[in-house]
């Protein structure tokens, strides 16, 4: 369990990082916290020619509230976000989801952007980004662009990021006053990848629900004026639509049951 040979580059600036990334493209991998990448490297599932370490770039450690929401640099760890003073007022959903992201130790290294770029279909942070309709900021030698969450994560471990692009920030829209948020997930052990994770947002009669761990990426649905058994019916149809997979942890049918059960739970929680 040792990685195949690779070159290691630690750029001194974002510009330099982008330059190197432009040079190597798909043969390079960006490492920030390394909590997903290192095990894959060690098992030789991933064999980059070059590893570009952005973990020490101060430019990427910004965590600030902007006009469009909370902007989180690619060097910000999940642990740093967890103790950020604005977390509860501005990102109440993330406040509920973060304790489920790995473990205390992994959160001290793992980054928010890293989790989103890794695009594990069961991960909590991509799920929250999808529900909140956040954006990912990408930069390359060709310029910068912002990609909405719904376009960013495309499938298992796959995103809209081009090979020469560096995800520099993610932006989570700040909570609106009239909205309520809830998060829940099922796993066999605390800190594991969720078998099913759900996040809900309610504002007035509008309900939004995001489901992770069932389809190949987080799926979001919006309903208006849904009440009583109509919620169960909508959740049941969503469960069937997403289908789910059988694996050693759970059956597809069980995943659908969790969509119905946890979906109802978080929707009710936001209605309270």
């Amino acid at each position: 369990m040792k990685p195949a040979p690779f070159d290691y580059i630690r750029p001194d600036s974002v510009d330099e990082a982008i330059g190197v990334l432009g040079e190597y493209g798909d043969d390079a991998r960006v490492i920030a916290g390394g909590q997903s990448l290192l095990p894959m490297l060690n098992m030789r599932l991933v064999r980059p020619e070059v590893l570009i370490d952005i973990s020490r770039l101060d430019e990427l450690k910004q965590l600030e509230k902007t006009g469009s929401g909370v902007r989180i640099g690619a060097g910000v760890t999940q642990g740093a976000l967890a103790i950020w003073v604005g977390l509860e007022p501005d990102l109440p959903l993330i406040a509920r989801a973060l304790p489920n992201v790995g473990h205390f130790q992994t959160r001290n290294r793992g980054t928010v952007c890293g989790s989103i770029c890794h695009a594990d279909p069961s991960s909590e942070l991509p799920l929250c980004l999808a529900l909140l309709e956040g954006e990912v900021e990408l930069r390359s030698d060709r310029g910068a662009r912002r990609v909405p969450a719904s376009d960013f994560q495309q499938g298992v471990l796959n995103t809209a990021r081009e090979a020469d692009e560096l995800a520099t920030n993610v932006v989570f829209p700040a909570a609106s006053n009239g909205a309520a948020y809830a998060f829940d997930e099922f796993n066999h052990r605390h800190g594991d990848f969720a078998v099913v994770a759900v996040a809900a947002r309610s504002e007035g009669a509008r309900i939004s629900l995001a489901v992770g761990g069932v389809a190949d990426r987080p799926e979001v649905r919006h309903w208006t004026g849904l009440e009583g058994s109509a919620i169960d019916d909508a959740l049941n149809d969503l469960a069937w639509e997403l289908g789910g997979n059988d694996d050693i942890h759970a059956t597809a049918q069980y995943r659908r049951q969790l969509v119905r059960h946890l979906g109802r739970k978080v929707i009710e929680e936001t209605a309270r």
Partner: peptide, 28 residues
């Protein structure tokens, strides 16, 4: 005693989807 297994023992049929719902549920 994984919950997916225990839930099967508890029994109860899974509610079917509404008409017209395209399902991605696997038929293994």
């Amino acid at each position: 005693l994984k919950p997916a297994k225990v839930l099967r023992w508890i029994g109860g049929a899974e509610p079917p989807p509404s008409k017209g719902i395209q399902t991605n549920a696997p038929a293994q």
